[in-house]
Nucleic acid binder design. Structure first.
Lengths: 167, 167
DNA sequence: CTCAAATCATTTGACTTGAAATCATTTGAG
DNA sequence: CTCAAATGATTTCAAGTCAAATGATTTGAG
């Protein structure tokens, strides 16, 4: 009665749902600890890395819809961590920038990643890190495949077992 | 200037965000096609598999907060796909059940999983399916680890590499 | 130049999400 | 038995999410 293909689908589904759940819980924990949620933190990190960006560019880089970003930036702005500045050359655009306080904050803010996952990741060899990243990226690719229209056949998917990191 | 640990962390983070994104997009597509979102579909499938459940039990099984479930069930109920029935023995509890229409609906509803991913998954060998499921479950384990307090040791991380489908 | 089309940000609307507070009911200690 | 504690569902609140509509501004065709 051990389930077979169909239950693998269920397991994958359950795992994805639990990933969503874990991300959300982590975000709420961050909010309680640092006054900032995970999406907010992701934006701050991106701004720290790239400097001032337009809303549009930032939205693309953090994989969020521009309309979603508005609320996130509103909250960051109300905390004085970022500021929006109209581009004088093209007044449709708004540059988003870290404030002094925002830069100071991000300099010692935690990773937006669950710390256990981040720690664990750092404990792996470079190669294993890459493989984990690649695995997740492949899952992303599979999930997105359907978004593209006629998306025909995908090439055979091959797994190779990875050395287990010594516990 | 390739990669290093730090950028792997970024890649993992980006992949997780994109997974959330893909799930959301898929859910909206489902809503447009079937009048039902992914979380709603997950609940229907669970009820089909398990029969009547209390709200609490259903929430646990689909990995959702009970308060979240209320809204989901409200919408399903308004579509006449489920009904809530007070337990006569303990009137605090409410059993949730598929209606006739709900059962008919779920019999031909799509998988809550992105269909490309589901198709792909079915195309794999049993063993590879298991490995993919296990990989994701490991990630879940790592992400949740921190939720538990002193969570010391983590189970060995065993992930598989998915080879990219030839573009 | 002029006005329609394009572009950028935002608003609006629907949904999901969890925590905390609330309400109804049951259970259990005294 | 009685009333406080526990339990199950729900409400309320704050956040995130996207699509579609809107508003402001710029660009480009004529």
């Amino acid at each position: 009665m051990v389930a077979t293909e169909e239950s693998c689908e269920r397991r994958v589904l359950a795992a994805l749902r639990r990933i969503v759940h874990a991300i959300d819980l982590h975000s709420r924990r961050l909010l309680a600890q640092c006054e900032v949620t995970a999406p907010q933190l992701v934006c701050l990190h991106m701004l720290a890395a790239e400097g001032a960006l337009t809303s549009r560019a930032l939205a693309q880089r953090v994989h969020v819809n521009p309309s979603t970003l508005v609320g996130i930036l509103d909250r960051l702005e109300s905390k004085q961590l970022v500021c929006r500045r109209r581009d004088p050359r093209d007044r449709r655009s708004a540059f988003v920038e870290l404030t002094r306080a925002g830069a100071a904050f991000i300099a010692k803010a935690p990773s937006p990643l669950q710390s256990a996952l981040a720690d664990r990741l750092r404990g792996l060899s470079r190669k294993d890190q890459r493989r984990l990243a690649e695995s997740l990226e492949e899952v992303v690719g599979l999930m997105q495949a359907q978004a593209l229209d006629g998306m025909p056949v995908l090439a055979p998917l091959r797994f190779s077992r990875l050395r287990r990191p010594t516990a």
